[in-house]
Write a protein that binds this DNA or RNA. Structure first.
Lengths: 260, 260
DNA sequence: CAAGTGCTTCCAGTGGGTGGAAGGATGTGG
DNA sequence: CCACATCCTTCCACCCACTGGAAGCACTTG
C-alpha cells in the first residue's frame, strides 16, 4: 500500500479482511484498540478502515463504543450457496425430523478437516448443546463428522487420520484403527453413532446426504441425552431426512459442492 | 486510490465493498465481467480485488468460472447480534409455535423502512411463500411489519406514512388513515393481521416482541393459506411466542438494539 | 478462420494510503 | 483537584501499492 507503511507488501484489501478476521464467537464485540491489536494494524489505520466498514454497515458501532458485525455483512453472507441452496432445501426435512424427535437437529457440511454447522434446530425439550450455526467441530468426534468422513475417498480418510486427532472427551475415538472400523460400520449400517465423544452426556445419530455419485454433500444428525439414546429408533427418521434432502438436491439439478 | 484512477476520491475499501454489493438474491452467481459492470469498476481492477476476496474465501469461484459468496463471508455474517443474540434466543419459542401450527413461522426486525427477516421456519405442510431469511419486505404490507410499525413512535409512523407506499396486491392498505386505524387496532388487540396484503392467497397473524420500555425489538408471525385463516385461534400461540422471546431477551440483559 | 466474448497478465506513472504524533475524552484513584 | 492511564480522533508530508489501458490467451460461434 501507499504511504509510510510498516509492513510493505500488504494490500489494503488484506488489511480490511484482517479486521473482519478478528471477529469470532469469543470476540463478537470488540473495542477499536482490541481490533487494532488482534489485526496487527496501527490504531490510526484500523480507525480509518473500521469507519469505512461502519459506513457500509458491515460493522456496527454500539452505544458503548464497541464494534460488532453489522447487518450488511449478515445479509451478504446469507447469499452463499450453503444458505440459499442447501439450507432452504433441507429445512422442511429437518422440521419433520424435529417433529418426530423434538431433539436437537444438526445439518453440517465438511470444510477442510472440520464439520461446519449449517443449521441447528432446537426446542425447549432438547438438551442444551455447544454447537451453533457457523461453528466448526472436528470430524472424528461428531456424528455429522463421522457420517461425512465415512463417505469420503480413502485418500482423504488416510490424510485425515495421519494428523493428530483432538480428544474432547475420554470417549473420543482417536486410534486410527478403531476409527476406521467405526467408519466402515457407519457405511455398512447407513448411519453414524457417537456416544459422548464430543461432549459428556450427549450422543448422536447421523446420516450422510449423498449426491448421485455417492459423494457426501452434507450430513444430518439428532443429538440426544446419553441416557435416552436408542440408535435403532432414531436412525430411521434421520436416514429418511438425509435421503429426502439428497433427492430434493438432486432434483434441483446444480451441485451444492461448497467445500474443497 | 493510488494509480491512474478513473474515479478519483474513491477508496480501495469502497471498491471492495462495491463488489460485495453486486451480490443480491437475483445475482447470487455472477461472472467477472458481470461483477465489473455492476460495480462500475474496470475489469482489471475487479479481477484483482475479486481474486483477493477468493483467496480469503469471502467469494468462491465455481467450476464454470462464476463467482458466488464464500464460506468466510457467511461465517463472519453469523457473528452479528441478529444471529447470535436474537435468533439463538428466539428459536425454541419459534419451534414451539411451529409445532402448534405447522405453518410458516417468521421472525423479523425493523431496519429503516423495511421488515428484515431474521428467521423463517417451514415444514412440508406449510404453504410456499416468497419470504426468506435476509429478505426485506415493506412494513405496511406484512404481518411482522405492521406489528413493528404499530409500536414505533408516532414520529416514526408519521414519517413512514408520509412516503409513497408500495402496493404489492389490491388488498394492500396504502391509505394513511385506514393504515393508522389498523395499527391502532393492532396495539389494542395485541397482534396484527394481514389478509392477502403482500401475496394473494396468504394471510398472517403477527405479534411484537417488546423490550422493557415497550419498544419493538422484533416481531413473530404465522403465515397461512387465506382459506384456513382464523386469527382468533392463531393469535394466542403467536403472542405466547413473542412474549416468551421478550422475557428471555430481557433476562439476557443486554439490549438487542440492532436497527436505527 | 475471422469475429466475438470473457479472462488474465503486464507495468509505468501517480494519488490515495499510511501511521507517528498531538490532542481530546473519559475514567480512576489518591 | 490533579496526576496518570486508557482509549479514541484528527492531522498531514511522504511515498509505494494501486490503477487500468493494452496486449495476449482461451474458448465459442457463424
Amino acid at each position: 500500500m501507499a504511504g509510510r507503511t510498516s509492513q510493505p507488501g500488504q494490500s489494503v484489501t488484506s488489511r480490511v479482511l484482517a479486521i473482519l478476521d478478528t471477529f469470532d464467537i469469543a470476540h463478537s464485540r470488540q473495542s477499536l484498540s482490541e481490533i487494532s491489536r488482534r489485526a496487527g494494524l496501527p490504531l490510526a489505520t484500523t480507525h480509518r478502515l473500521v469507519n469505512e466498514l461502519v459506513t457500509w454497515r458491515g460493522l456496527r458501532r454500539c452505544d458503548d463504543g464497541h464494534y460488532e458485525v453489522g447487518l450488511r455483512l449478515w445479509e451478504v453472507g446469507l447469499l452463499g450457496p450453503l444458505h440459499i441452496r442447501l439450507r432452504e432445501v433441507a429445512l422442511p426435512f429437518l422440521q419433520t425430523l424435529y417433529e418426530a424427535t423434538r431433539e436437537n437437529i444438526h445439518l453440517a457440511v465438511r470444510d477442510g478437516y472440520d464439520a461446519l454447522y449449517v443449521e441447528k434446530l432446537s426446542g425447549h425439550r432438547s438438551i442444551p448443546i455447544i454447537s451453533r450455526v457457523g461453528a466448526r467441530l472436528p470430524l472424528h468426534a461428531t456424528g455429522v463428522g463421522k457420517a461425512l468422513l465415512a463417505h469420503e475417498t480413502p485418500e482423504f480418510r488416510r490424510d485425515y487420520l495421519a494428523q493428530p486427532l483432538t480428544r474432547p472427551t475420554r470417549y473420543t475415538i482417536v486410534e486410527p484403527g478403531r476409527l476406521l472400523t467405526d467408519l466402515e460400520q457407519t457405511v455398512h449400517r447407513g448411519y453414524a453413532v457417537t456416544r459422548e465423544e464430543m461432549t459428556l452426556g450427549s450422543c448422536s445419530v447421523a446420516a450422510p446426504v449423498l449426491d448421485r455419485h455417492g459423494r457426501p454433500v452434507a450430513a444430518v444428525a439428532v443429538v440426544v441425552d446419553s441416557i435416552r439414546v436408542e440408535p435403532t429408533k432414531l436412525a430411521p427418521p434421520v436416514r429418511l431426512a438425509a435421503e429426502g434432502i439428497a433427492a430434493r438436491l438432486d432434483a434441483t439439478a446444480s451441485d451444492v459442492a461448497v467445500h474443497g
